[in-house]
Simulated scan of single mutants.
Amino acid sequence: MTEAQKNESLSLDRALIARFLEMMSAEVGSSPNTLMAYGSDLRLASEQIEKGLVQAESDDLLRLGEAWSRYARNTVARKSAALKHFYAFLVEEGFRSDDPSAALPQSGIARVLPKILTVEEVDRLFTVLDQRRCLDPSPATLRLIALVELLYGSGLRASELVSLPKQAFKRKQPFLILKGKGERERLVPVSDRATEAIAAWLIHVPAKSLWLFPSGKGHISRIRLYQLIKALAVEADLPRERVSPHVLRHAFATHLLEGGADLRVLQLLLGHADITTTQIYTHVDSRKLVELVNTRHPLVDVAVNPA
């Protein structure tokens, strides 16, 4: 690996580590001490792996874990947790199609499942939006409605949503074509509700804007999106720590799966390269799975002939 390639890998790592820490701060609400420790662990690991964290393979992480043998158990657990969360972030955001972190020492920390909103709680968010549309149909209100419709109705990632090109939306086209990392394209459905919400918002978007949700010289930021969703949660009398753009994306997947959607279809809708990511992300109550088997299996209605 040339020196120029090493510098390029290090630069990419630093940029994505910064984005990861931004997400941990805005969405997860990690403390400054946790962010400082995670940032230090990730940057150090990036320097220790020749090809960098983003391009690292299982063998690279295995060697890195072996080098941690001189550290105390708590330190190893923290370092493993930092890298596992980072790789989960890379997969979720589409920067990697696989997660090599299984090669790291087991930290004893179970993966935390995304927070879940019930259908009733989501309804409360939309009730507030409907009330705001009646009382204050301002551009800010119309923009928020369009953002939430796409988060919950289409399951977009926060990064995908804020950076949507204006030309991606066409009134007579019931889907968006998104191009993620690795130049992978996927179709994202747009409901009639979302279509109407976007059309109402588009009236206020400058004709020369490249973005569907412009702000200043670019587009609305992820941080601003988080702030808007948190404020909406408070208005709907929901704990702000339980509601975020990612939680609404997870609600999209969970509620579809509870309604009988196929896991492979969800994989395509969510843009996951690996089905195992979808299985972890779309956590459903085990009772729902048992009920699905008992009602949908072809042998349900076949009488058992006793011997």
Rank of each mutant, 00 (worst) to 15 (best):
L210R: 14
K217S: 15
A303V: 08
L62S: 15
E120W: 02
L266T: 04
V304C: 11
A67G: 14
G182M: 03
V28W: 00
S107D: 03
A236K: 07
Q173N: 05
H204V: 04
K84Q: 10
K115E: 08
R184V: 09
S58V: 09
K288L: 12
S101D: 03
T276R: 14
A236F: 10
Q5D: 15
A158M: 11
R287A: 12
R193E: 13
P165C: 06
I145D: 02
I109R: 13
L151M: 13
P245R: 00
T118M: 02
P139T: 12
R63W: 04
Q5H: 08
A81P: 04
L269W: 00
K217H: 13
R14M: 04
D274T: 02
H204S: 12
V76Q: 11
S11I: 09
P174T: 06
F175A: 07
I116Y: 06
R14V: 13
W68V: 01
I229R: 00
A45C: 07
P137C: 13
L210G: 12
K179A: 08
V188P: 00
G65D: 01
P105F: 01
Q106N: 15
H85C: 09
L104F: 04
S97A: 13
I275L: 15
Y281K: 00
V28A: 10
E291V: 04
L263N: 09
E3H: 11
R296W: 04
Q227A: 10
E196N: 08
L64T: 01
G218A: 13
A4W: 06
L21T: 04
Q167D: 08
L268P: 00
Y38M: 02
M23T: 06
A4Q: 14
I223N: 05
K79A: 02
S11T: 13
T34L: 09
L21E: 02
S286Q: 12
A307W: 09
E47G: 11
E241A: 08
I17Q: 01
R132Y: 05
V76L: 09
L147C: 02
P239F: 06
P114A: 12
L270S: 09
V28Q: 10
R287D: 14
E258G: 10
E235P: 01
E47H: 10
Q55H: 12
N33I: 14
A72R: 14
L263T: 07
E27M: 03
G29T: 05
L257R: 00
W211Y: 13
L64S: 03
I229L: 01
A236L: 03
D60L: 05
Q48D: 08
R19N: 11
R222I: 06
S163E: 10
R43I: 10
L212E: 09
K170C: 10
R296D: 06
V190K: 02
E241D: 12
K170L: 11
E47F: 14
L176I: 03
V112A: 15
L228S: 00
T2R: 05
A81H: 05
A110Y: 08
Q55T: 08
